[in-house]
Design a protein around this nucleic acid. Structure first.
Lengths: 195, 195
DNA sequence: GACAGGCTACCTACCAGTAGGTAGACAAGT
DNA sequence: ACTTGTCTACCTACTGGTAGGTAGCCTGTC
């Protein structure tokens, strides 16, 4: 009905991966939450690795589309960075970690194919950010892109680790500040940042 | 002999938690690596939660001592921040994630007591950093401390996720830069940061 | 319109392996 | 004698995965 069982499973699995980690959920959990039997989950995703890869693929696809939309809709650097930040932390409101960050934390326990795909996802974001910054006239675009991504991922992790149900993200200011400073510096070779 | 079995188990468990995650290693793994039987691991740590808490306690103790040593030995702000950065990423050379960051990623799958202790550990670091920055004359010490911690945790995660066996940490520069900018700003109300 | 064939989505029942955990014996050190 | 550290041997619950089957829905063909 509403949505396909397959899509439902993908959503549930993604949620688990972003709050408990890949190793900490089972086909049994998925089946129970979805209201079907374990074997039926295997019907849709023969192995857990296949499921993990499918989650990453779906995420990749959705994320790329969103990035493209930002590039298309937002003409100005500040606007693009703001939209990116919003997109990035979109799930955090639901208490979810960014998928790549969550997976990175258990990298050595992941199947190789998943490691590679997750790394690829990070690279895509980094490349997109670098392009946006470079087009916006920011010097050292690659380095600044890394700074931004690191702040977002790190902020999500630290905020997530600190807060049981804590207030908003104590690092939102930081990211906003970093964006502002990047925009401010877009036309010169250096710029200010207030503290 | 050499070191106590208990300490050996703690070290092995910490290594697993920082590379695979808490959910992804078992008493069987520990026993095999330590050269004893599973039941003997239970003799030292009756439950997995007790083991996890002991790892966190040991980490806490060691870390606090190191922080105290930095406060004692390094008089100057820049020196202290440099020492902190070095301490923080000390294990990264061995391909390990910071303990708190790694645990944060699977927070919802952890026993409540471990969640709390991990959050406490983060808080300790944040408070220490805030003190150091405030004493160093940095304005908005709390916010800057958060920026630093976020950069370090995020950098570790992103670097870890990106690199199979990649080069050094692509974010080391960023952290050094952030430290430098904080030091530079220590006497004024604002400062420059180069890009 | 009936009917076969194939397909999707699900089921029950099972597998071998492993999870965390327990009970009780033994040997060595004090 | 008591404690400490380890052992063998076991438990129950659950893991990812498989075998084999069923009910319903298309599609084509007569």
């Amino acid at each position: 009905m509403t949505v396909s069982t397959r899509q439902n499973l993908l959503d549930i699995a993604a949620r688990h991966m972003r709050s408990r980690g890949y190793a900490a959920f089972s086909y049994g959990d998925l089946a129970a939450e979805c209201g079907i039997r374990k074997a039926s989950v295997h019907h849709h995703f023969p192995t857990k690795e296949a499921l993990g890869l499918a989650v990453l693929d779906a995420h990749q696809e959705k994320f790329s589309a969103r990035l493209q939309a930002i590039t298309d809709d937002a003409a100005d650097l500040r606007e693009r960075l703001t939209a990116y930040g919003a997109l990035f932390r979109e799930g955090s409101g639901d208490g979810l970690l960014p998928l790549c960050g969550a997976l990175a934390a258990e990298r050595d326990a992941l199947p190789q194919a998943m490691r590679d795909k997750a790394a690829g996802l990070l690279r895509v974001q980094l490349d997109w950010l670098t392009d946006v910054l470079a087009q916006g006239g920011v010097a050292h675009a690659a380095r600044s892109a890394m700074a931004l991504l690191v702040a977002l991922e790190g902020g999500a992790i630290v905020g997530w680790g600190l807060s049981g149900v804590a207030s908003g993200h104590p690092f939102d200011d930081l990211v906003a500040e970093l964006c502002a400073s990047l925009c401010a510096g877009a036309k010169g070779s250096h710029h200010r940042i207030s503290h």
